[in-house]
Design a protein around this nucleic acid. Sequence first.
RNA 1: GGAGCCGUAGUUUAGCUGGUUAGAAUGCCGGCCUGUCACGCCGGAGGUCGCGGGUUCGAGUCCCGUCGGCUCCGCCA
Length: 587
Amino acid sequence: MRTHYCTDLNENNIGEEVRLVGWVNSYRDHGGVIFIDLRDKTGIIQLVADPADSKEAWEQADKVRDEYVISIKGVVRDRGEGLHNPKLKTGKIEVVVKQMEIQNECKVLPFAIGDKNVNEELRLKYRYLDLRDPKMFEIFSLRSKVSIAMRNYLNNHGFLDVETPVLTKSTPEGARDYLVPSRIHAGEFYALPQSPQLFKQLLMVAGFDRYFQIAKCFRDEDLRADRQPEFTQVDLEMSFCNQDDVIAQVEGMVKAGFEAANQTLVTPIRRMTYHDAMEKYGSDKPDLRFGLEMVDVIDLFEDSNNEIFANIAKDQKRNRFKALKVSGADNHYSRKQLKELESFVRKFGAAGLAYIQVKEDGLKGPLVKFMSEASLQQLLDRLKPEVGDIIFFGAGEKKVVLDYMGRLRIKIANDMNLIKDGYEFVWIVDFPMFEADDNGNPTPLHHPFTMPNMDTWDEENFEDIKSIAYDLVLNGYEIGGGSIRIHKEDIQEKVFNMLGITQEQAKEKFGFLLDALSYGAPAHGGFALGLDRFIMLLSNTTNIRDVIAFPKTQKASCLLTEAPSPVEKEQLRELHIRVKLPQNEAN
RNA sequence: GGAGCCGUAGUUUAGCUGGUUAGAAUGCCGGCCUGUCACGCCGGAGGUCGCGGGUUCGAGUCCCGUCGGCUCCGCCA
């Protein structure tokens, strides 16, 4: 049908007869001569229809409108002196049309192809038109290259691509499951996998040694700009490994993907403990494209004449007093804007936002009078502020302070444009094994099959127990995570005990896994990379929908297919399902 | 579950303290035009102001509800 793609042609083809097919990107009718920009996935080339060359072709060209599909036969020629268009890759040449066939017409478009000012709602309804934009093709071309490169890396390193079930068993832990009713088993349900976690561990027990899969995962939780209900993980698992072995393979894989995107990644990627990330950046996924590290100043308020501050400083295990020095902030933030920063942190539980402005004539701010001379001097020594800086303070319960100060740090970096271009990877390691739930009971931070660091095992202080888990963070996004798994029954029992899970409960919930571990399970561990987020960052967008061909809206519907939708009564009957809507309307 | 922002020709939008026929740009249709590439010039058509109620002599505008989209909090082992 075609001899070339549009941008395959260049000056070397001058004089050649070619056949091209594609879409009419635009046309310019000059009464006599008609110009058509023909587009395919590679780009654009200009066609010229001149009645002097072919009356019939010109008559066809006269009928052409935007986004018509046409095929042409023509001859490549130089555009001539002064007529080159440097904006086009093919701007030096054009194709003189000898024959033209309109293969398909196009209705008036709901929006101009490539117009990103249009409502996303409309673009999603006509996603196939939105995807015609060459910029969109570029994203999916990148996604394809990156994922193939990572696949190849894993293949070359002994990882076997194995598919695991999509119809599987609901597990009570973790995110809400998407359920699929069983026709054959009345009243029973499959769950779509939140990840292939348990299956990949079983493959290790099976002795496959190294597994990977580019797997769709499903979580029925509320959406965000970087979260879709179905998403893709590059999932991997390996046997007879420790944390460094897994990290080395992941770094190799990510590097391969990165290089496929024409980026360079220097390995090894730096590592930071969970503790340091929380204390310095107030987040377990710190954005390291800018500084603004928090500094501990709780000791400087032990002698404060303010009762509240002095009290906070008394319990240095449970409380925090953090300082965030922002260079030049005094010139950037007005009084009113500083108030706005305060109401920003209040949303995250802050009682207020104290700050000290460093002026020509000294320190200004309510906190100054609550500090002793000696403490103030120590503060200056510790932070070394300069005139024009503002030091922000967060004080109170550890978890709350770290959270809102971490958010403040990011907000200020955005406000003051402190975020550098580029990619900053970091491994977060030494995660706590457990955290306290609302009632103060231990719950797993990762999942209950994560290997605890037994050197830190402490029945009395479960919050101090570390796990052998690691997250990969890029520019403030968690792009993946993994762990070494428990492969011994006695340790697994200890963990279940800690979680208050009885043997019967464990057997009922995860019996098949525990069984498997008792038949000669090798030490093993793995990792899963969030492919969508990774591609999102490589595509320089902050919206995961941009890198998913047919994404869902925030209410998890597909505007193109209108899924989800009601189904026929007969379908429900076969599935033994009766629908009961909240308003008491029966279906 | 909660908070905020948004919804007006095909599209992007203007529309003030409620007041004649809801205005513009672009797209679309028709005419003219042989070197444009955001082609140009002339003319024309095109609006349930998301939907439903209410207040009012009168609602795109005010109030209540509802639907949809986006961002965030909760949630996401």
